[in-house]
Amino acid sequence: MSAPQRLLPRRSERTITATLAGPRPVPRVRVLRRSSIQRRRTRTAAAFLAPASLVLGVFVLYPMLDALRASFTDARIIGPADWVGLANYAELLADDRFWNALWNTALYAVVTAPLSVAIALGLALMLNRAVPARLLFRAIIFFPFVTSLSLVSIAWAFLFDPQVGTAAAWLSQVGLPIGNGINDPQWAMPAVMLVGIWRNIGFFMVMFLAGLQSIPRELKEAAAVDGAAGFRHFRTMTWPLLANTTMFVVVIAAIFAFQAFDQMYVMTGGGPFFSTETLVMYIYDTGFEQYRTGYASAVSWALVLVVLTISIGQLWYFRKRAVQY
């Protein structure tokens, strides 16, 4: 991975400054009529954006809008669909099961997202240093993300089966009985949360590692010379410079948490009595078990609105902290 010498000036000629206050506008490099430069750059940008936008537009956005349209009808999975206006949305606002699912999902997100991000960051910091068997540890921690979640949830379900599970028996032997475990309404949600966190820490860790390694060495060395000690070094130097990555991880973590489905589907089926039913499970139930596509679409778009609000909030929060080199 060598830098093309002709296009880049020598290292000694470059100065790197880290700006901690907002992004700077891209400087104009030639003194010509501004508008023609701008137009040319817009065209170039459009060209770069086009292929991906086309695919996303046709195969993702369009179906999403189709679902939006369906949410205003009484569509069942097939057959005629009559326009019902906002009736589906009115229904979901009055639907206890919807609010229960929203509550469960929010609870799940509020617990798992920050925890998994924090744990992942800790692990990334640990594994960014010269720890023995660093690569092995990284691989192990990333393992949960490598398999299909629904398959590995089978393993979790067996391990923690209150009556015949291996882990349940071990815990009982060391004096930490799990009682009725995942069938206990109080423990079902913590159990699926645990699986969710377990699943994602490797994923977020890898992203943090990528971010950590993008911090220019000069800055780290400068801090070391200044005598910044361990945690202070992290808080004043690493953490702010990691802001781009952190923003990304936090936004993604929230979006993923709100879409939790696989482990609940396999391990608890949304039970006991809906205590682990997330929004996506409810959408699946209304859409594919009750065949009410219109209503399921409405619930889905309610989910999108909630997640979008949260994401925009997060993006706005981090906008002021964006790092530009």
Binding site: A157, F158, D161, P162, Q163, V164, N180, N183, D184, G269, G271, P272
Partner: peptide
Amino acid sequence: SPVGLGGVEADALFAAGR
């Protein structure tokens, strides 16, 4: 019976001879 058994768990309990 234990409370809250799912189908797979009930089968597992019987298969384990319990």
